[in-house]
C-alpha cells in the first residue's frame, strides 16, 4: 500500500501532536469564538487518519482499539443525552449548574464547555471508525 517512507515518519512525529493541540484548542474555544465540538472533532479525527495513513493500520490498532472507540461513543452519547436533559430541567426548577461566569473567560456559559468536549471526542471517534471501515473495504 503506502511505502513506509522515513521522511513522512519523522515529519509526522512533529506535526501530529501539533494538529491535535490545534483540535483541542478549537474545541475548548467553542463558546468564545467560532469552533466548538463539530469542527474541533473533525480536526482531531484528521490527526488520527494521518497517523493511520503514515504508520499503517497495525500501529494504530495496537494503541486505539475499535471496541474502545465504540465504548467512547456510547458513553459520550449517554452523557450528552443526560446532561442535555438535566440542563433543560435545571433552567425551569433552579437546580445547581456550573458557573455562568463573565463573558470572555473560559469557565463561563454553564454547560456548553463540557458538552463541547464530549462532542469533540464523539465526532473524532465516529469519523475515525467510518474511515477505517471505508479503507478496509468491508462496508
Amino acid at each position: 500500500m503506502i511505502k513506509k517512507d522515513i521522511i513522512l515518519k519523522e515529519v509526522g512525529k512533529i506535526i501530529i501532536p501539533l494538529v491535535q493541540i490545534f483540535g483541542i484548542y478549537i474545541i475548548v474555544n467553542g463558546h468564545l469564538s467560532s469552533g466548538g465540538g463539530f469542527s474541533g472533532g473533525t480536526v482531531l479525527a484528521s490527526s488520527l487518519i494521518i497517523m493511520h495513513l503514515i504508520y499503517g493500520e497495525a500501529y494504530v490498532e495496537k494503541n486505539i482499539k475499535k471496541e474502545t472507540l465504540i465504548k467512547f461513543i456510547s458513553i459520550s452519547l449517554i452523557f450528552y443525552a443526560v446532561v442535555k436533559g438535566y440542563s433543560f430541567l435545571s433552567d425551569v426548577y433552579n437546580l445547581p449548574h456550573p458557573a455562568l461566569g463573565p463573558v470572555g473567560k473560559i469557565f463561563s456559559a454553564g454547560f456548553i464547555l463540557y458538552l463541547n468536549i464530549v462532542l469533540g471526542i464523539l465526532v473524532a471517534s465516529i469519523f475515525y471508525i467510518i474511515f477505517s471501515i471505508f479503507i478496509s473495504k468491508e462496508v
Partner: peptide
C-alpha cells in the same frame, strides 16, 4: 424523546 434515545444508546453497548 429522551428515554427512547437514552435506551438506544445503552443498547449500543
Amino acid at each position: 424523546i429522551l428515554i427512547l434515545i437514552l435506551f438506544s444508546f445503552i443498547i449500543l453497548i
